[in-house]
Design a protein around this nucleic acid. Sequence first.
DNA 1: TTAGCGGGCGCG
DNA 2: AAAGCGCGCCCGCTAA
Length: 637
Amino acid sequence: MSQWNIESPTTEYYDHNSPGLEAIVREVTATPEVAIDTETTGLVVWKDVPLYWSLAWGNRRMTLNVSVLHYFSEAFADPNKRWIFANAKYDAHILANVGVRIAGKLVDTQVQHALLYEEQSHRLKDMNQHLFGWKWQDFQDTFGKITKLFSPTDLIRRAEAENFALLCEYAANDAWGTLQIYEELRTQLQRAPTHSLFRDHPLNIQTLWDLFDRVEVPYTSALWTTERNGVKVDLGYLESIAPTAVAEIEDLERAICKEAGTVMNPKSTKQLREYFFDKLQVKPLKMSKGGKTGVRNPSVDERFLAHYEDEIPMAKMLLRHRSLAKLHGTYITGLRDRVDPHGRIHTRFNQDVARTGRLSSSDPNMQNIPKPENDKWKLRGAFVAEDGYDLSVVDYEQLEMRLLAAASGEQGMIDVINKGWDIHMGNASMIFGMPYEEIKAAKNTPEDQLTARQHECLAARAAAKNIGFGLIYGMGPKKLAGTLNITEAAANAKISQFKEAYPAVEAFTKEAVAETEQTGYAFTILGRRRNVPEIASHRRDERMRGERIAVNTQIQGSAADVVKMAQILLHKSGIDKRFGARPLLQVHDELMHEIPKDYSAQADVEIREWMEHPFPIDLVVPLGVSGNLGNSWLEAK
DNA sequence: TTAGCGGGCGCG
DNA sequence: AAAGCGCGCCCGCTAA
């Protein structure tokens, strides 16, 4: 039965009784690249297990019973073998859950696809449709919808009993299709030349295939280990704040209904609009985006509420309610429900989502845990080191600004960094001609003792900081004026001063836009590229957005490259074997590790070392890092 | 019941 | 005229 692909070979099936099993084991052991997939009990990486698995190589495809997995231990233990997956980390977790550790390379077709077609879906069946132009029935099309009543296990068990051939065919096809996609994308990646700073250096990245094979493939393994470790949670801490939070939120809800004079749900923007704009006839500050339907409504967001908090009691109450409800819903119950039996949370680090090459984190998202300054319950304190371990938390300091300095070659900014100055203070000093020491003194003076001149110094630093970020993000003068609470004319004047002080930065942004206009792409340091079709749009607003993306992707994407290389080098360094150090989290410019106390000081120094030197050659500016050891995320930062 | 959208907001 | 980049999750609401 070949209902999916008329050119595919016949599907084989093996269990422990199959006479050909030994020959298959020998062949898999000897084959350098093998595609592999699992059919599993579910999607939870620390819990679910395989029910069937499948392999494909050359002109063979087969489904296998889980009972024969251990016959392949030699193949799984081979560090040089390349295992081809669609969603590699997931399958590697599922296999690890039944004791199968993969020593070989985790080669992920979804990551391949993301390097070439970042705007498309990288799901296996969608990649097939996109690359080969035919629709392939997915799991739910084949076996039925996964619902509360029917788990993946139920559906597979049903197919097992009713149509085993279909089950075998489906499973084998996942591995087979993955292999076809791998080979097609390998060719495409090899034919895609790219611009990398490391073209003629040891990394020697000349094509997107080089980038994939030398950077993204080892990165998948580093991330797998990170996900597998998971971060330890102090459940008692979460449990202890939950009831207080609920009580506080309920009190507020009662008070809000009383103030409204009727039963209302403060989480309903619809009801809030009725209250503010129909009942009270308040003037809206702005309209919402509208989205696909194009229906724009007056906004009741935080800025609106803050604007009216002194005049309208309800606004103030809602502000408190919003922040408490967010913390409770997303971070207290949301995290509590995802803790594994060992008290650890295993996020997923998605390597194929962000268009700039950054990671994203999901299930749960560990990259948006509130900062202590915005969090009355200090939830970061709930992420702790295991007994006998320390947490090491190391951040890059102003990584994107440093990369802007390096990419532009702006000597003024490079000097500021080389002097070890605070970048925003240094920039303020350069741009507005104020002595650095004076700004520094102002920053260290208590709020209530500031002189008028010192206020000016602090305003200068804030301006320099926002113009700097604004440059990276493409912020306009209007937005800057709003952020700094100054007039648009004043904002324009400050932007001009910045450009005069740092002409090479201005030239860099122009050059970035010109390159993207010419090639259609924005490139990062390592040669990752992002298609920017907006830059050729006939619509001015789209084109402007394309220009912002052209500049931002170079900086944000290169920052992602830096952290990515640091993670890869750390993974390869043997710091785990020498010191027992475990990677736990990456939060864009920050790495968290868990290290046995006896070695934590030593390992922490080595982590900083790798982070500061992520490339075969150093950049023209140092990459400064800072951080601490501690018992929790709160302590170690 | 489920799926998708919009609004809002947490992080870098 | 207006113009901030990159993510993921919660909730309410509506349609199927």
